[in-house]
């Protein structure tokens, strides 16, 4: 870990000013990922701008019946908030599938979106990594890539995004509220994270000097037919090999609306509008779910150690959609896959 300067932002405008004034600076809220990366010398910010005291901790209903979640709301507070539990249980479930209680207590909603990949090469400064050191090469493509992406990869990076919450937010069509030097804007969460292409060192579409102020959930919460299923190498406290957020609206047994997003398989939460469109109007059956899985996994490419992920993802998609259709969502507390 290197020495760094520390500033405490007094308000959002101050945070933006500080960010713009100090090009090597990073924002810090819960610090659950950034501090780890600093300890490993992967992140070496010249300055930390502490935003943890900014007034971005509210969860409020919006005029159109949605929900606006302040960027600094701790992950646990969000997961256990009554409005989230009642109206957006998919979000609660995805959050509780991730990390540990202690980490969720510290981690902020905005920070969750900003967490970086868990690729082992990204973490090890003794090995090449295009994400950490642009142009140095990707060690994972021909290396240990069991945990790596199968969708949206590039020749320069096959890392995955590790967030669970983002997968649920992507499925629900959340929007990200952003403030920056040129004012405020919003962006669909689906557009927030980038694919690696040839700039894997840039994870998101935030511009320089911009800060996440809130996440907005649309009114539709899919509270009846949802499930978040995370498949990993142990039953808790591990990153996803594959995770699936599924949300359905049913009329009888017919699907009127469908959302499916995948985690652990790409550089961002993975959705396929084609797959979701194909589900609409269909009966909620394993066959139809299987077809949707095929569409979601179109173009999937395996590397030397992760070919299992394609079939695992296919099966997990079907299972999660069945859980959602049957209104038997995966519990994050039971020691069992339902």
């Amino acid at each position: 870990m290197i020495n760094f300067q520390y500033s405490r932002a007094t308000d959002v405008a101050d945070a933006i000013l500080l960010l713009s004034a100090h090009p090597g600076a990073k924002l810090i809220a819960g610090g659950t990922n950034l501090i780890d990366l600093m300890k490993e010398n992967v992140e070496e910010p010249s300055r930390l701008i502490d935003i943890s005291r900014l007034p971005l901790r509210k969860i409020e209903e919006t005029a159109d019946g949605g929900l606006r979640i302040g960027a600094l709301v701790p992950n646990s507070d969000l997961a256990y908030h009554p409005l989230i539990e009642q109206r957006y249980p998919l979000v609660a479930s995805a959050i509780l599938a991730g990390a540990s209680a202690q980490l969720r207590n510290m981690a902020s909603v905005g920070g969750n979106l900003m967490q970086r990949t868990r690729c082992a090469y990204f973490y090890d400064t003794a090995t090449p990594c295009n994400k950490r050191t642009p142009g140095s090469g990707c060690s994972a493509i021909d290396g240990l890539n069991r945990n790596h992406a199968i969708l949206g990869t590039s020749a320069s990076c096959i890392a995955t995004n590790p967030s669970d919450m983002s997968v649920a937010l992507a499925a629900l069509g959340a929007r990200v509220h952003i403030a920056g030097p040129s004012g405020e804007r919003t962006m669909a969460l689906a557009d927030f994270h980038r694919l690696p292409v040839d700039t894997p060192h840039i994870d998101t579409n935030l511009d320089i000097g911009e800060i996440i102020t809130a996440i907005e959930l649309p009114p539709r919460g899919f509270a009846h037919h949802y499930s978040y299923l995370k498949i990993r190498d142990r039953l808790s406290y591990a990153f996803a090999l594959v995770s699936v957020a599924a949300a359905l609206e049913l009329e009888g047994n017919a699907i009127s609306e469908a959302r499916v997003a995948l985690g652990g398989v790409a550089h961002k939460p993975w959705r396929s509008l084609e797959a979701e469109t194909a589900l609409r109007g269909q009966a909620a059956t394993a066959d139809h779910f299987s077809r949707a899985a095929d569409l979601l996994l179109q173009g999937a490419q395996a590397y030397s150690h992760n070919s299992f992920k394609i079939e695992l993802a296919r099966r997990a998609i079907v299972r999660t959609l069945m859980q959602a259709a049957n209104a038997t969502p995966q519990s994050q507390a039971h020691k069992k896959i339902a």
Binding site: A120, T127, L144, R234
Partner: peptide
């Protein structure tokens, strides 16, 4: 669960931490 994973191209252990070196947790 347990396995120390080495990248033999670098001769380096790549999961040298207890997030990635898995041991059973309560849920297991």
């Amino acid at each position: 669960h347990e396995e120390t994973v080495t990248d033999h191209r670098f001769g380096r252990i790549m999961n040298a931490n207890i997030a990635e070196y898995h041991i059973p947790v309560n849920a297991d």
